[in-house]
Design a protein around this nucleic acid. Structure first.
Length: 281
DNA sequence: GTCCAGGACGTGG
DNA sequence: CCACGTCATGGA
């Protein structure tokens, strides 16, 4: 590995938890302990040995930014540590960090992530990249630009096993290609307005919008509620919620606003720690 | 085979 | 406002 960063004791970091928790879909861990993946047009390999982070394909500034190593994690964890349940999650996954991902990739990825499971999302994103992304070293492919995805037919996208999501990806990619400033505009807005902007994209509902805001726009009050998080929140904090069933917009907002009140302005980080330790039953 | 998954959308009440 | 059915796909 060409480059390295030595993490101080004041910079807790857990590479496995960060790349394995399902926030990014383009990383794989090899048997040698090395994670291989792509981010923002780079093919990167990275491994962690205690305080030593070794990597190729990017410089120290890029790695520091992508993994948010410049953020005071201890202060974040202290602020969300509101009860025994989140305390346990933090103890288990300590060092998990919310990435700073690329907006268009995050937007399309979370449209592909509706009503499905993580392995299937990874396959869709991989196929989109291999077929419409720029080749990178070592047989990797960058996630395609909006201008590369926009001309695709619905059938071509359906062939990337997008299923019924194909027309959503098609229409959203065209909107982005026609409006290259969309991400900069969203980045400049406060949470609620930014969320309203994202909800204009076909295939983006409340949950996907919150994921995009959390993972690509550093809107840390965003609290995505999927079936896992709903289950955890019902079991731990909101026992009056129905046992199961779909989530109405009202219930989604009830859960998310409770989380913001309970965990504070870094509720999204709490969400990632809870999601990381999710269990069946 | 059945059930479920990082849900969103259209329709009818 | 709400409830409900539907939408492909793959893994358990």
């Amino acid at each position: 590995m060409k480059n390295s960063i030595t993490l101080g004791t004041g910079t807790p970091f857990n590479l496995d938890a960060t790349l394995g928790c399902g926030q990014a879909f383009r990383w794989e861990k090899g048997a040698d302990g090395i994670w291989s993946g792509t981010a923002k047009g780079r093919a990167i390999q990275i491994r962690q040995d205690g305080e030593i982070l070794s990597f190729t394909g990017a410089d120290e500034a890029f790695i520091t930014d992508y993994f948010a190593l410049d953020l005071d994690l201890d202060q974040v964890l202290f602020s969300i540590d509101a009860d025994p349940a989140i305390h346990r999650a933090v103890a288990t996954c300590r060092g998990l960090r919310v990435l700073r991902q690329e907006p268009f990739e995050t937007l399309i990825s979370y449209i592909c992530a509706t009503n499905t499971n993580i392995p299937a999302v990874k396959k869709r994103v991989r196929l989109l990249s291999e077929r419409y992304g720029t080749p990178l070293p070592d047989g990797a492919y960058a996630f395609p630009e909006a201008s590369a995805l926009a001309p695709c037919s619905e059938d071509a996208l359906r062939a990337c096993v997008l299923g019924y999501r194909a027309p959503y990806v098609c229409a959203t990619a065209q909107m982005c290609a026609d409006d290259p400033g969309w991400a900069a505009r969203v980045a400049a807005l406060p949470y609620q307005e930014a969320k309203s902007e994202l909800l204009r994209f076909p295939g983006v509902g409340p949950k996907a919008a919150d994921c995009i805001l959390l993972f690509a726009f550093q809107q840390y009050r965003a609290f995505p509620v999927d079936v896992w998080i709903r289950r955890i929140m019902r079991r731990t904090y909101l026992p009056h919620l129905r046992e199961r069933g779909g989530m109405s917009p009202r219930e989604y907002e009830e859960i998310a606003s409770f989380a913001r009140q309970h965990f504070g302005k870094y509720a999204g980080w709490a969400q990632e720690y809870l999601y990381c330790v999710r269990e069946e039953e």
